[in-house]
Every structure is written in structure tokens, then in C-alpha cells.
């Protein structure tokens, strides 16, 4: 049997079809009949467990998290210690990934560099969720003038290319981890607002909300008990996509030399160091380790987000 979402989905397109070619709108029975033959990958995946790749991705994220959190306890050298008797060395038992041209241990720099990506990504989205998400939840439910104003405002802010604003603010304000997390977090507020508002709005008119209202529930109670639980799937999925998004922006800034100040390592500036001073021809691995780690982290976050989206029956277009 097709699930609700597919019915809704095809129902909507049947509706559109009817707009365009009167008399061609499909009836519900036809939709169901169409559905049973449908061969969308989403359908098949939904009935399956998460699958090997999902657990692989989750494992990689767990490894990166644990390594970053316990970096101080691991038997690593100081990532900023310059050992002049071990410059530009290849992998050895003392330096598992070798050293860079200043004699710093690449493995230590890689592991400590993960901290920047994770902190910026997850705390940044936390800020976006707290401010943009809360505003979107309430605004979508209450509607009215404030909602119209906030909605228009978020449109205008999103019209400004974020990277330009972020580059300017970061440089003038000072390149610390705290500042970058706050700035990128603020940059996600309008995004979070729009997605969560749209979801909240779609539930605000539903029968169970009307019923709660009729029974005399307060607005606070309705938002927290009726709307919030329904909005959570979209929120979790979209948050994961946004985490990947800000990790990319931080990496871009770091590559341009505009993220955390050197010598603090971050994957973006490690990749940049791996391309500087002809390093790509002498030792491409300096660039390759952080590049691979970044690729795997982004891929894992995207994959988990995508699998959850399929599980929660959210259409890709809504995000």
C-alpha cells in the first residue's frame, strides 16, 4: 500500500494536471492504482532498514566526534609544536601521517582541526535553531502582521549573498572560533525560520490543532504539544543539511585564510597549507588527508540527513 505522503504527492500533481488540462485530473482510485506500480527509489528504501552506508556514515561521524573531544587525552603531540629536526617527513611510527614543512605532526593537526568544523557546524546550527526555529514555529502558527513582516525580512536577508557579508564581518570583528560560530549561526537564522515556519504553517490549520483550540488549550500549549512534535522531522533533517552547509562555509573561509587564526588548525586551512609552497608536487598527502576527512564528514552528514528524510517522508522539494 502506498503511504500518505505518496497519495498527497501524486494528488497534488493530479491537481496541477487538472488545472492545465480540464478533465484529466486523476481520481483517488486512479492515483492509488498509479501508486502501486510506482517505482520510486524512496519507496523501496523506506521499507528497508537504514542500510550499511547509514551505519558507516554514523560510525565516521562518531569517530570524528570522539577524536575531536578527546584530542587532548590521545597520545598526540602538540599540533602547533614545530619540530625542526623532523621537517617535511613522510609517515613513520613517530608521525603516523608525517610532518609538514615546519615539522608539525600532521595527524595531531588533523584531529585538532576537526574541532573547528564540528563546533562551527553544530553550535552554529544550534543558534539558528534557537532563534530562527523558535520564531518560525510561533510565526507560522500565529500568522498575522508579524508573520508577514518576518517572512518578508527573511526573504530580503537571504537575497544578500552570505559569503560576502561573512567575509566582511569576520575580518572586521576578528577571526576567533567564537566569532565565526556566532556569525555563521546568525547566517542560518533566516533559513531555519523559513523552513520551520512553512512546516508550522502547514500544521496550524489541521483538525487536531482546531480541536485543541476548541477544547480551550492555550497558544503555548498548542505550539509545544501539537505543532512542535510534528515539526521535528523537518527540523532534524534540515538542520543536518545546514550543518553540512556551514561546515562548507567555514572551510571556504579557512581556505581563504579568513577563519580561525593560524597556527590553530582547521581542515580548511590545512588543505590550504597543503597547496601552498609547491606542496602539491612535493607531498600531495598533506592536502589529501584533510580533504578526504572533510569529504567523508560532509558525505556522512548528507547521507544521514537523506536517509532520515526518506524515513520521515519529507519531499526533497520542501527543503
Amino acid at each position: 500500500m502506498p503511504d500518505d505522503r505518496e497519495l498527497l504527492d501524486t494528488g497534488a500533481s493530479a491537481q496541477l494536471l487538472g488545472d492545465r488540462f480540464p478533465g484529466m485530473a486523476a481520481t483517488d482510485e486512479q492515483v492509488v492504482a498509479m501508486q502501486s506500480e510506482k517505482l520510486d527509489s524512496d519507496d523501496i528504501l523506506q521499507k528497508r532498514p537504514f542500510g550499511f552506508l547509514f551505519w558507516f556514515a554514523l560510525t565516521w561521524i562518531a569517530i570524528v566526534f570522539l577524536a575531536a573531544i578527546f584530542a587532548n587525552l590521545l597520545p598526540l603531540q602538540n599540533p602547533n609544536y614545530q619540530n625542526y629536526s623532523a621537517l617535511s617527513q613522510g609517515p613513520s611510527s613517530a608521525h603516523l601521517l608525517g610532518t609538514d614543512d615546519l615539522g608539525r605532526d600532521l595527524l595531531a593537526r588533523l584531529i585538532f582541526g576537526a574541532r573547528v568544523s564540528l563546533i562551527v557546524g553544530f553550535f552554529g546550527v544550534g543558534i539558528g535553531l534557537l532563534v530562527g526555529g523558535t520564531a518560525g514555529l510561533v510565526s507560522g502558527y500565529k500568522g498575522g502582521r508579524l508573520d508577514v513582516a518576518l517572512n518578508a525580512g527573511s526573504f530580503i536577508i537571504l537575497a544578500f549573498p552570505a559569503i560576502v557579508a561573512v567575509i566582511a564581518i569576520v575580518t572586521f570583528w576578528g577571526q576567533s572560533l567564537l566569532h565565526i560560530t556566532i556569525i555563521l549561526g546568525i547566517a542560518t537564522i533566516p533559513l531555519m525560520f523559513r523552513v520551520i515556519r512553512a512546516s508550522s504553517l502547514s500544521f496550524a490549520q489541521r483538525d487536531f490543532v482546531v480541536a485543541a483550540k476548541t477544547m480551550g488549550a492555550t497558544d503555548t500549549r498548542i505550539v509545544l504539544r501539537e505543532i512542535l512534535p510534528n515539526v521535528i522531522p523537518v527540523t532534524v533533517t534540515f538542520s543536518l543539511i545546514t550543518v553540512a552547509g556551514i561546515i562548507v562555509i567555514e572551510g571556504t573561509l579557512a581556505f581563504l585564510g579568513l577563519s580561525v587564526n593560524l597556527p590553530t588548525p582547521s581542515w580548511g586551512n590545512l588543505i590550504n597549507e597543503g597547496t601552498a609552497n609547491n606542496a602539491l608536487s612535493t607531498d600531495p598527502y598533506i592536502m589529501l588527508w584533510p580533504a578526504m576527512s572533510m569529504f567523508l564528514l560532509l558525505w556522512s552528514i548528507n547521507l544521514i540527513g537523506d536517509r532520515l528524510r526518506q524515513r520521515f517522508d519529507i519531499r526533497e522539494g520542501l527543503l
Binding site: A244, V248, G251, T252, A254, F255, G268, I271, N272, A291, M294, F295, L296, L297, L298, W299, N302, L303, D306
Partner: peptide, 10 residues
């Protein structure tokens, strides 16, 4: 899907 995780700096 893999390409989604390949930003220009990587």
C-alpha cells in the same frame, strides 16, 4: 550524492 560533499576547496 558523493558530489554534494565536494565543495570547491576540497
Amino acid at each position: 550524492f558523493g558530489m554534494l560533499a565536494l565543495p570547491p576547496f576540497v
